[in-house]
Amino acid sequence: MRQTPEPARPDLAAAVAALPPPPALPDDAALFLDVDGCLLPFAPRPDAVEVPPALVARLVALQTHLQGALALVSGRSIATLDQLFAPAVFTAAGLHGVERRRAGQALGAREVPPELARVRDAAMQLAHDHPGALVEDKGLAIGLHWRMAPEATKTATGAALRAFAAGALTGLPDYQLQPGDHVIELRPRHADKGSAILAFLDEAPFAGRVPVFAGDDLTDEPGFAAVEAHGGLSILVGDRPGSAARFRLASPAAVHRWLGVPATPPAPETPR
């Protein structure tokens, strides 16, 4: 989930452009990868992203090469990650670190608070009243999207969804707002991507390796701090200013090239 950036100052934009590309992935890396905006380009709807088979195959190969030390670290739920990357199953942290599945373990079910279920139902009614609005049910989190709202009403729709989410917090004391690019999310406040990465680094097969994390969003900054604290590599994807990352890749396509994902050949032309 990409957060809406503030207008970049020329000095910050120049600093981002000056970040060097990352070195080749170390053989002893512990590799952590954000998904949306990093491995996958954004789509109008969260369920409209496409995962290239070549990407899945390369991640499986890297997982083997790194002796299992590869994990997806995403704002999506782990169940959704499994659907996207099927038939592969990766070690993962979901919902910005709220969920965490260790290698080879099943993800235990967590009960959705009744208060959140009521907020979800009310949000769906609100979305019904605003054309183009979308409620993304993540189980323990809810995303309210307005990317597809008509341009004439997009600003008003976004304001209505943000106001709704802010009001919903009064009944969800353990939750926080996570703003993004045409989205506002209600999610638990007790974890972030940095805490998830640090927990993985205390366990096999990640322990003792060089941590590497690539991500694009403000929600990835705790992850950058975590790997830097362990002498690792922090990689910003895109051109968001003000990041603490030390390296940069311009786009998901650049991430694919860095990871060694084979280029997808162009489709053959249909004979006339």
Rank of each mutant, 00 (worst) to 15 (best):
R240Y: 03
Y175M: 07
D217F: 02
K138F: 08
S195D: 05
P266W: 01
D192E: 06
H130S: 00
P22C: 01
P21D: 06
L161I: 09
A163V: 00
G242Y: 12
H256A: 09
S195A: 15
R272T: 05
Q125K: 12
V56M: 03
I78Q: 02
F206P: 08
G94H: 03
L259D: 10
G68W: 05
A253G: 10
T157N: 09
F90Y: 05
P52V: 04
L40F: 07
D220I: 12
F224G: 00
G208E: 02
A14G: 13
A214Q: 05
V89E: 13
Q67M: 06
A191D: 11
G171Y: 03
H230S: 06
G215W: 02
V227W: 01
G37E: 02
H190E: 14
F42A: 11
G215V: 01
P205N: 06
V212A: 03
D28P: 02
A199C: 04
A160L: 13
P46D: 10
A204H: 14
L140W: 11
Q3C: 04
I78R: 06
V35K: 02
A54F: 06
A8M: 00
M1D: 06
E6A: 13
S195R: 15
D202I: 00
P265M: 08
L66Q: 06
P205Y: 04
P53K: 14
R209I: 04
D34T: 04
P26E: 08
L177Q: 01
H230G: 00
P53H: 14
V119D: 06
R100M: 14
A18S: 14
A149S: 12
A123S: 12
R187N: 02
G68Y: 05
Q125G: 09
V60P: 01
L62R: 11
L144D: 03
M148W: 00
V51I: 12
L70K: 10
G242Q: 09
A123H: 04
L107N: 08
A166N: 03
H190Q: 14
S74R: 05
G208S: 06
L126V: 03
E6T: 08
A69K: 08
S74N: 09
G158H: 11
F32N: 02
R246T: 13
D36S: 12
H65E: 15
P131A: 09
Q105A: 15
R2G: 09
A156L: 11
E151W: 07
F213S: 08
E151V: 11
V73R: 05
A253K: 07
F32L: 10
R58C: 09
Q67W: 00
G171C: 08
V210M: 01
P113S: 12
L177P: 01
H230T: 00
A253H: 09
A117D: 14
A244V: 15
Q3D: 15
G75H: 09
R189I: 08
A24F: 07
L249N: 06
P5G: 01
F200W: 01
L55K: 07
D192S: 08
I235N: 05
T4D: 13
Q83V: 12
Q83I: 04
F90M: 10
A13P: 06
I235K: 04
L72E: 04
S77I: 03
V60Q: 13
S74T: 14
L201S: 03
R102I: 00
F247S: 08
T64E: 15
M148D: 10
P241D: 09
H230C: 11
G171A: 15
A30E: 09
